[in-house]
Nucleic acid binder design. Sequence first.
DNA 1: TCACCCATGTGAAAATTTTAACATACGCCG
DNA 2: CGGCGTATGTTAAAATTTTCACATGGGTGA
Lengths: 220, 220
Amino acid sequence: MARRKKYKFPKTTIERLSYYFRALEDLSKRGIDTVSSEALGGKLNIKSSQIRKDLSYFGDFGKRGMGYDVKYLLKELKYILGLDREWAVVIVGAGHIGAAMANYDSFEKRGFNIAAIFDNDEKKIGKEINGTPILPYDNIDDFVKQNKIEMAIIAVPAAAAQAVADKLVESGVTAILNFAPVAVQLDENVRCLSVDLTTKLEALAYYMSYSQDKLWKIYS
Amino acid sequence: MARRKKYKFPKTTIERLSYYFRALEDLSKRGIDTVSSEALGGKLNIKSSQIRKDLSYFGDFGKRGMGYDVKYLLKELKYILGLDREWAVVIVGAGHIGAAMANYDSFEKRGFNIAAIFDNDEKKIGKEINGTPILPYDNIDDFVKQNKIEMAIIAVPAAAAQAVADKLVESGVTAILNFAPVAVQLDENVRCLSVDLTTKLEALAYYMSYSQDKLWKIYS
DNA sequence: TCACCCATGTGAAAATTTTAACATACGCCG
DNA sequence: CGGCGTATGTTAAAATTTTCACATGGGTGA
Ligand SMILES: NC(=O)c1ccc[n+]([C@@H]2O[C@H](COP(=O)([O-])OP(=O)(O)OC[C@H]3O[C@@H](n4cnc5c(N)ncnc54)[C@H](O)[C@@H]3O)[C@@H](O)[C@H]2O)c1
Ligand SMILES: NC(=O)c1ccc[n+]([C@@H]2O[C@H](COP(=O)([O-])OP(=O)(O)OC[C@H]3O[C@@H](n4cnc5c(N)ncnc54)[C@H](O)[C@@H]3O)[C@@H](O)[C@H]2O)c1
């Protein structure tokens, strides 16, 4: 189990660690070896004190007076975030969102291996998206078990989402990224995050209507 | 300017109002006239006290002992969220994400009218997606001005996102939904929300690695 | 009409998260 | 080798957000 200094920290910290990771990758690519919390924060619109605090939950990664070694911090964050290994993922729903996710090669680069896409539409089964096969939804159970799939992306219509989630969990999946606009009810040992695009647009509509409310982080 | 009792409330309240709205639509469709905060919360995994507090920032919508009238609350939330009008939206980037968004008809139903999609790929220009034309990116300026576009969805590669955002804002757009994995720097009177799918997956990876951390709301 | 039930709206407390401030440590330069 | 500039890690304070607890008022039925 990875290093951790404190046992409690904000939930938002994890999300930010992911942003730090990506920004550091960018710096690394551009040949920058060292970065201060101030400089990193400037890139991300996050206060430097926030960055230092976030990192301090997990260890002492910087050098006083110097800042952080980019490569070293990348390695540590990779470890903390659980990106130092491969994750076997399936997508359920070979529609627009499912296809977008399957086509996004950066996921593979990060270690998320999309093993298969499942759909119940006869016309889609047998085809493939970006090299990943579309398999019959009825076989998902066996596939998940045999391939020790741990993560799933749900990209089916809202009406089907709960049933799909139940089946996935039953088969052994313990983490779900859900695109369906519905609150899926799950056992508490299953991690589930929802991406709700309608809500994002509606929040924008609200803030357009009330222009006196000045707020917003880059992350939501 | 719509009703509001209090001038300060959590940013997360707006996101939840959107969830309430959707859940109420569902109830309404199923012929349910009245709902208690307890029942609504059960549907959404949100505490009833949270719901009552959220609503109380905007008005007194319920009847003691009775709960909330579904249709009436829907009407009020629609008004509060700014969904009682039409919003003219453009999508920039006719790739996978852009296409998914353009194909999602629920946005139109909510009043988000996707007026056009812009791309700089000659092969895509002139085609259409779900009835919406793909236009040359070079014309975006004029189009946004002429059609009084207020909202934009950025679905271009990260490297292009900042330039696209700048151009949009210059042309008059004041709200942006950004899918590019980069923190776009904007004037503070522009509302910008980012959807970061990689971060969601990475957060899941973290929580898989540290299974002792039990947390998660349905929303993130 | 009155008593009782029920679920709201709210004020206060608790919990969480962010921000500020600074003592501490590192490296550089003279 | 010691003083100086700098940016960390941390402690304490401030700000925000959630949860609790209950007084309040509407509806119902006797
Ligand atoms: N496209 C968007 O921009 C967008 C925006 C917001 C929310 N969403 C949500 O994301 C989800 C996916 O959206 P989409 O646009 O990709 O939908 P889509 O209709 O393009 O694709 C859905 C796919 O799921 C398959 N499917 C349906 N029921 C299934 C089942 N029981 N088992 C297996 N496969 C099944 C269908 O055959 C289809 O291929 C939906 O819940 C939608 O509400 C999408
Ligand atoms: N597809 C996914 O699942 C996914 C996941 C996470 C993040 N994203 C991000 O979302 C964004 C879009 O992803 P995508 O998969 O749709 O990409 P894509 O490559 O499918 O589409 C990008 C489109 O933008 C167009 N484009 C490029 N530069 C442009 C410019 N300067 N002006 C106008 N158009 C331009 C391209 O021609 C292309 O049609 C990217 O930033 C990507 O990193 C996508």
